[in-house]
Amino acid sequence: MRRPRTALAMAPAAAAAVLDEPALAALRRVCELVPGPALDDLGSARARAVLRNTEVLVTGWGCPPLDAAVLATAPRLRAVVHTGGSVRGHVTDECWARGIEVSSAAGANALPVAEYTVAMILLSGKKVLERAREYRAARQVEDWLTVPANVGNYDRTVGILSASMIGRRVIELLRQHSFRILLHDPYVSAAEATHLGAEAVGLTDLFACSDIVSVHTPLLPATRGLVSRDLIASMRPDAMLINTARGAIVDQDALAEATAAGRVRAVLDVTEPEVLPAGHPLWEHDNVLITPHLAGSQGTEWRRLATAAVAEVARWAAGRGFAHPVPPESMGRSA
Rank of each mutant, 00 (worst) to 15 (best):
325 P>I: 12
64 P>H: 06
80 V>A: 03
278 A>Q: 15
221 P>I: 05
256 A>R: 05
27 L>N: 04
101 E>M: 11
233 A>V: 01
308 A>R: 00
285 H>D: 10
155 D>V: 00
110 A>L: 10
208 A>T: 00
87 V>A: 12
4 P>Q: 02
149 A>T: 06
104 S>F: 12
249 I>Y: 02
154 Y>W: 05
305 L>H: 00
245 A>I: 01
38 A>V: 05
138 A>W: 08
24 L>T: 12
185 D>G: 11
103 S>Y: 04
150 N>Q: 05
69 A>C: 08
15 A>T: 04
185 D>N: 13
99 G>L: 05
44 S>E: 04
173 L>R: 14
155 D>S: 05
205 D>V: 03
223 T>H: 00
152 G>A: 02
185 D>P: 07
233 A>Q: 06
194 T>V: 06
180 R>Y: 07
228 S>K: 03
332 G>P: 00
294 L>T: 15
85 G>C: 09
295 A>W: 06
280 H>D: 15
102 V>M: 02
111 L>R: 14
263 R>W: 04
45 A>W: 01
305 L>T: 00
315 R>I: 01
21 E>M: 09
320 R>H: 13
203 L>T: 00
223 T>D: 01
138 A>Q: 13
143 D>T: 11
319 G>Q: 04
244 T>A: 13
127 K>E: 15
300 T>G: 07
212 I>T: 14
9 A>I: 13
146 T>L: 15
97 A>M: 09
192 E>R: 14
298 Q>K: 14
23 A>E: 08
16 A>N: 08
326 V>N: 04
195 H>M: 04
143 D>L: 13
94 E>N: 07
321 G>S: 12
21 E>T: 12
244 T>K: 02
302 W>R: 00
215 V>F: 02
97 A>H: 11
135 Y>M: 14
291 T>M: 10
328 P>C: 10
179 F>Q: 07
